[in-house]
Write a protein that binds this DNA or RNA. Sequence first.
DNA 1: AGGTGTGCAC
Length: 628
Amino acid sequence: MLANKINHLLSLCKQISSSQPISHSRPLRYLPPRPSLSQIKQAHAYIIVSGVFGYVRFMGHILAYLSLSSSIPLDYCSTIFHTMSFPSVFTFNNMIRCLAKGNSPYDSIALYSSLQRRCLKPNKHTFTFVLQACSKALAINEGVQLHTHVIKLGFGDDLFIRNALIHLYCTCSRVECSKRVFEEHVLCRDVVTWNSMLAAMMRDGQINVAEQMFGKLLEKDVISWSTMIKGYVQNGLLEQGLVCFKEMRVRGIRPNEAIFVTVILASAQLGLLGHGQFVHSTIESLNFPISIPIGTALIDMYAKCGCIEKSISLFNDMPRKDSWTWNVMICGLASHGHAKKALALFQNFTSEGFCPTNITFIGVLNACSRAGLVCEGREYFKLMVDKYGIQPEMEHYGCMVDLFARRGLIDEAFQLIETMTTPPDPVLWATLLGACKIYGLVETGEKIGNKLIQLDPAHDGHYVQLAGIYAKARKWEDVVRVRRLMIERNTNKVAGWSLIENHGLHRFVAGDREHERSSDIYEMLQTIGMRIAEAGYSPNVSPVLHDIEEEEKENAIKVHSERLAIAFGILVTEVDDCIRIVKNLRICEDCHEVIKIVSKVFQREIVVRDGSRFHHFKEGKCSCLDYW
DNA sequence: AGGTGTGCAC
């Protein structure tokens, strides 16, 4: 159809050009709204070959079409531009736009200067394009100068330009300036202006202000909702983001791809399967197409919500995948300890012609470390550098140190750290510290622990780990000393919590008695205690740091948040249902042991996502093979 | 001829 039109255009132009000049816009009128690159090239070639009268004017249009391409052919654009001796402002504008959109923002800004040197007068379109370039280049100084030009030339009231200015100031973290632009013109604000301002407040973390603005916004379009939802999620207010999404659905607004991706991501971060499934079912009920970004986000979400099988089946069903999709799947398999599957997938990935990225190798190395595959880990690390030329980053060293440390190869971990050109991240030392705790290496642990506390004195985790090492060696005086240090320094203590979903969210902290079914929960804890004792369990109190009597220590670990959540889970779920818990910190050794036994004596499948990985408890065993 | 919004990590 389109080809016919173009052919028609060509023959028409041939006929006309032999007799009389054709009118200005005719060669381009036959192009569709977003023509393909080859269609644009055909039209361009024809304009030149036919020697159409006024063809210089068409070059601006050709550039305008090119600026709409998904990946802008900058070489082609500049060839067109530089063949013209006297480009018009229109042509300049579209070239500025091509450069801004095609990731050459500095060239775009430079072209604006050259437009002025030629004594051409920029118009309102010039500013929207060049301001976009400034936002992209974070060129705040140039942006401020342009703002003065805008005012001088009398474009200060233009809605599009003001929105571009708001966007510029907010991407350069000048929220106060964008607020000023926003407030200057109360009368002529449109939805887009509100949206830009909303985005600015979000980026600045001023959620309350943004919320008020959102409330005042009478006509909310899809992007207003998108901005608000994304803002919640970006600022870690995941549950509010999902509530906002639900409200949008209630009002009958059809979400777009970006919104779906954002709320799937929020569900993944929360780790709550119910929320993720709700979003997935919304997509299905709207018959919304599963694009690559949505499919990828869903795979990631199911993996992070503990349903790795569902991730795998979605992955296999996806007709088209990009390297992100593969990376998500490899990382997902790795986080669940399915090392062999992750490594097999890596082989398929490369044999299908994809090029692995630094992220791919984080997944691969993570798979090796989770499964204790030391030899494979060493090989992949070498392959990454030698074959793919990827320089190891902190995260790759993190995986390797973890790999060695878990196997007790502390010396090899130290050797690797010594080869690093950049100073090691405290996370690497923290990984080693964890290994010292597992292997009972009190002296090494003490050295690393003190070093870490020196490096990062506000992080309470380091004190807790070091105290844990002392506690395991029953060095109670040292435990007390470290704990006292932690209290004196008033560290940012992160409270442990566990979440479980059952007709809404239930969050527990240790010793919690706030829940409405608290007395039932504690009764269930008693029952659990009796039944696991019958099965031969005896408490391991080393994780308890308090210098208190043994009996009290036992009581303290009995009420860890994950146990309260599991007791509640047993109370409210059906026997065949899997109990899913999300915990912010790492699970303690004793709770891990308890949950293993619970899974056996109560015949329940329990999945715990802790701060670092997944634990699938079934028949008295855990998928981590007691290695975390 | 113009402005706003999405995915992978120790």
